[in-house]
Simulated assay, not measured.
Amino acid sequence: MATPIGNLADITLRALHVLQLADAIACEDTRHTQALLRAYGIDKGGTQLLAVHQHNEAEAALGVVQRLQQGQRVAYVSDAGTPGVSDPGARLVAAVQAAGLRALPLPGASSITTALSVAGAVAHHPDNGGFLFAGFLPAKQAERANAVQRLAGEPRCVVLLEAPHRIGELAQALATLGARPVTLARELTKQFEEITTRPANELSAWLEGSPQRSRGEFVVLLHPSTPAGDDGEGLRVLRLLLQELPLKSAVRLAADITGASRNSLYDTALEWKRAAPQAGE
């Protein structure tokens, strides 16, 4: 089941009900889960908390299956968000299903969908609609650079995750994408939540602007690239519309007419506006 990614109020009523009823709770970190349960006034003994994490998931899954076969109700939670996506849980679910038992989803908080909901990065276009979840890129510099180059040709929004101690290295790797818009979302739903969208080649400078900006877990969204063939027509229509309409209206219509990326058109329109000579110059 999903647990809060920051704000404790992001738990669902259904999740609280299930946690109270569960005979056992399988968790990524028993200490973290115990603290979470106390915050909601749920009392579970130490023997009811089962450690199921990336280092013991295959073995621990067998213990969960045995409990289920005995008729016990077992809930599984990761430290934050929805398990089985980038957190442990996939092997556990697979083992439960292989044993002929049911695994029931309990939806709730997810850093991925939380960031996507405010970034405006998912295009509604037949060629680049939807998004690709890529998770954490390789830690080694050369492998990370190769991964970024492969993603550079992906026309859809790409969702990445990154830890605070590596966000600077990721920003440097993404700089090769030039002006492609990237949204950084850190500390989601927490007190110091921060969300910003900037060209890929400006991310490092933004991070270096304040030590606070490199703290917390990150969701990184690569906005859709402009589909091949759309640039010329989209920009031509945009330039014509800007002569008669406000910027936002012109961008919206140009994107609807040509199918070009609205985000890309908007960024271009802003660049034109900044570069345009002011009256009296």
Score class of each variant (00 low, 15 high):
residue 144 R to Q: 13
residue 145 A to S: 08
residue 145 A to I: 09
residue 149 Q to G: 02
residue 150 R to V: 04
residue 150 R to E: 14
residue 151 L to H: 00
residue 152 A to V: 07
residue 152 A to M: 07
residue 152 A to G: 04
residue 152 A to P: 05
residue 153 G to V: 01
residue 153 G to H: 11
residue 154 E to M: 01
residue 154 E to N: 04
residue 155 P to F: 04
residue 155 P to K: 00
residue 155 P to C: 13
residue 157 C to H: 00
residue 157 C to E: 02
residue 158 V to E: 08
residue 158 V to Y: 06
residue 159 V to I: 08
residue 160 L to N: 10
residue 161 L to Y: 15
residue 161 L to T: 03
residue 162 E to L: 03
residue 162 E to I: 00
residue 164 P to M: 05
residue 165 H to M: 08
residue 166 R to D: 03
residue 166 R to S: 07
residue 166 R to V: 07
residue 167 I to Y: 05
residue 168 G to A: 14
residue 168 G to S: 12
residue 169 E to R: 15
residue 170 L to A: 03
residue 170 L to Y: 08
residue 171 A to Y: 03
residue 171 A to I: 00
residue 171 A to F: 00
residue 172 Q to H: 11
residue 172 Q to S: 14
residue 175 A to Y: 06
residue 176 T to M: 12
residue 177 L to A: 02
residue 178 G to D: 06
residue 180 R to E: 06
residue 180 R to S: 06
residue 180 R to G: 02
residue 181 P to D: 10
residue 181 P to Y: 13
residue 184 L to T: 09
residue 184 L to F: 15
residue 185 A to P: 07
residue 186 R to C: 08
residue 187 E to R: 09
residue 187 E to S: 08
residue 188 L to C: 11
residue 188 L to K: 01
residue 188 L to T: 10
residue 189 T to C: 05
residue 190 K to Y: 07
residue 190 K to C: 09
residue 190 K to G: 13
residue 191 Q to P: 02
residue 192 F to K: 12
residue 192 F to D: 06
residue 194 E to H: 10
residue 194 E to P: 04
residue 196 T to C: 14
residue 196 T to L: 04
residue 197 T to W: 09
residue 197 T to I: 10
residue 197 T to Y: 14
residue 198 R to A: 08
residue 199 P to D: 11
residue 200 A to W: 11
residue 200 A to H: 02
residue 200 A to Q: 08
residue 201 N to T: 04
residue 201 N to S: 11
residue 201 N to I: 07
residue 201 N to K: 10
residue 202 E to I: 05
residue 203 L to H: 13
residue 203 L to S: 11
residue 203 L to V: 04
residue 204 S to G: 09
residue 205 A to D: 14
residue 207 L to G: 02
residue 208 E to G: 02
residue 209 G to V: 07
residue 209 G to D: 05
residue 212 Q to Y: 01
residue 214 S to I: 14
residue 214 S to N: 09
residue 215 R to F: 07
residue 215 R to W: 00
residue 216 G to M: 12
residue 216 G to E: 13
residue 217 E to Q: 13
residue 218 F to G: 07
residue 218 F to I: 07
residue 219 V to A: 15
residue 219 V to G: 09
